[in-house]
Every structure is written in structure tokens, then in C-alpha cells.
């Protein structure tokens, strides 16, 4: 029983990171029909940018600031201007395929310019354990969970309680009408790309100390985020959060209770089941089919 509780906490911690990545993923889909197959690589890259800055001799916090700034520039603005804007007119599928090519490109770039070996990455959360209600819990797990929850709360507050958030939702739900009532739709779409870039940088900061910085990290992370987004519901931010947490827990539990060999299969089977029986996800609304 105690083992189960530990697994749950560790699962929620990784799940919270998946949730952050999945939320960014769904935001891009909602505002600009972008299925970002490079989302996992987007999470992998900021850690490498930060490592490069630290390699140049800067302290950790400076590296974090520059790393986040660079990912806003490259993965937010650059991604939108150089890839999404020119591809969007070709339709959803060519754009998705272009992001697959981008994923290969980013992965190879990290391998070439940095290293094919895994590099250690410092954690912003101090190591060690703390005791809560007589139980020993890794500070790392709690810290990740708290930071991720704060990020998600911040985002939902932004989306639901502020004027900018309402404008973003309007731009996502019906761009034509939003434009008529005076919402600067283009700026709102750019904002979602920047938010996504920030979220992936944050996820990178949280997960890389656990996984080490490796060029192939994106594959696992990207797949986990896709599955979280689909299981939760592609068109709902809270769906993506629930999906992320669920996948994190399922992942950890199946590592312990299913064979380690087929651990990776459990979330995939869950994904196929959800797509077959409830394609809109646990919390999503069905999308209307258009002719």
C-alpha cells in the first residue's frame, strides 16, 4: 500500500510535466490547427540551450533566463513565422508532416552541436527527502508537482479571468466573429505560440534533471504529451491536464505492476481504446465534421 502511494506521487509529478506539454499542444491546435509533432523535441531543446549558456560560463539562473528567452524566440516566434504561417494554407496534414521533419531536424541538430551522450542537468529544486504525515517523499517530486500546478493555475487564470484570455478563447473558437468584434486575432495566435514556447521551456527545466539532457528525449516526451492530449480531449485545456496526470500515473503504475518490457504499451493501448470508443477524449466536446 505504501508502495502504491509512492508510485502515485511520482506518477503525478511526471504526469504534471506531461500535462504542461499537452496543454501547449492543445493550445496550438485550438488557435491555429497546428498538430505539432515536434512538441517533444521542443521540450528537449531548451535544456540544451541552457546547457550551452552555462557552458559559456554563465551561472544557472542566467542560463535559465536566456534559455527561456531563446525558446520564446525560436520555438514561439520562429516556429510560427517560418513554418506554421507559410504551411497553414496547405492544410492540416502537410503542416503536421512538416513538423515531423522539424522534429528530425531539431533532434539531429542537438546530436551534432552538443553530443550524442546524455549530459547531467542541474535541478532548480533542491534534492533530498521531506517527511509529510510520517511518510518520506522525494522533494524533487513535490517540487515538480507544485511548480507544474502553479503553471497550470496561472494559465487557466490567464485564460478564464483576464481580458487577454477571453480574447484568446474568442480567437480560437471563432476567428471571424472575433475579428469583427475587434479582437486582434493575429496577435492572440502569436501569444499562444509564445505561451507554448514558455510551457515547453518550463517542462524542459523540470524534466531534464530526471531524464538527463539527451537528444532523443523528445520521442518519449512527445508521445506522452500526444497521448495525454488525446486521452484528455484535444479541444479542452482541462482535458489535457487530466490526461497528462492520468498518463503519468498509468505510466508509473504499469512500470511497477505490468512487465517492464511492456510498460510502454499500456498508455498506447489506452490511447487506441480512447480513440476507438471516445474520440473526443474524456473531457472533450465532439468536433463537428465539415464537408
Amino acid at each position: 500500500m505504501s508502495n502504491l502511494l509512492d508510485l502515485l506521487i511520482a506518477g503525478l509529478a511526471t504526469g504534471a510535466i506531461y500535462a504542461i506539454v499537452a496543454v501547449g499542444f492543445t493550445l496550438l491546435w485550438q488557435t491555429s490547427q497546428t498538430i505539432n509533432f515536434a512538441q517533444g523535441e521542443f521540450v528537449m531543446l531548451p535544456a540544451f540551450l541552457m546547457l550551452a549558456v552555462m557552458h559559456a560560463g554563465a551561472p544557472f539562473w542566467v542560463a535559465i533566463v536566456i534559455g527561456i528567452a531563446l525558446s520564446l524566440l525560436l520555438l514561439g516566434l520562429g516556429f510560427k513565422l517560418l513554418l506554421v504561417d507559410p504551411m497553414l494554407r496547405h492544410g492540416v496534414l502537410p503542416l503536421a508532416i512538416a513538423t515531423m521533419a522539424l522534429a528530425i531536424g531539431i533532434k539531429e541538430a542537438a546530436k551534432q552541436f552538443w553530443s550524442a551522450e546524455a549530459s547531467p542537468f542541474p535541478s532548480i529544486i533542491p534534492g533530498g527527502d521531506i517527511t509529510i504525515f510520517g511518510r518520506i517523499v522525494a522533494l524533487q517530486s513535490i517540487g515538480v508537482l507544485v511548480l507544474a500546478i502553479l503553471a497550470v493555475l496561472g494559465l487557466t487564470t490567464l485564460l478564464n479571468r483576464t481580458s487577454i484570455g477571453h480574447q484568446m478563447q474568442a480567437a480560437a473558437q471563432n476567428p471571424t466573429v472575433a475579428r469583427i468584434v475587434g479582437v486582434p486575432v493575429e496577435r492572440m495566435i502569436l501569444l499562444t505560440f509564445l505561451i507554448n514556447a514558455f510551457l515547453v521551456a518550463l517542462a524542459s527545466l523540470l524534466i531534464t534533471p530526471i531524464y538527463l539532457a539527451k537528444f532523443s528525449n523528445g520521442e518519449v516526451l512527445g508521445q506522452a504529451a500526444f497521448i495525454a492530449a488525446i486521452v484528455g480531449g484535444f479541444n479542452q485545456v482541462r482535458g489535457a491536464i487530466a490526461g497528462g496526470l492520468l498518463i503519468g500515473v498509468v505510466d508509473n503504475l504499469s512500470a511497477a505492476y505490468v512487465s517492464t518490457q511492456y510498460r510502454a504499451a499500456v498508455p498506447l493501448v489506452l490511447l487506441i481504446a480512447i480513440i476507438l470508443f471516445r474520440p473526443q477524449g474524456m473531457m472533450g466536446r465532439p468536433e463537428e465534421r465539415t464537408v
Binding site: 498538430i35 492540416v92 496534414l93 503536421a96 508521445q223 500526444f226 497521448i227 488525446i230 510502454a264 504499451a265 498506447l268 493501448v269 490511447l271 487506441i272 480513440i275 476507438l276 474520440p279
Partner: peptide, 22 residues
């Protein structure tokens, strides 16, 4: 192909991706 009868585009990409990994 059966999932393709229910879902399109990216959902289908993910089902087939999951199959590939399995």
C-alpha cells in the same frame, strides 16, 4: 483501417503511431 472509419487526420496518425510502437 477500422479506426480510420471513425477518426481522421491526426487521430489516425496517432493510432497508427501507437500501432507502430506496439
Amino acid at each position: 483501417g477500422y479506426p480510420a472509419l471513425r477518426v481522421q487526420h491526426h487521430y489516425l496518425a496517432f493510432v497508427t503511431l501507437a500501432f507502430s510502437t506496439l
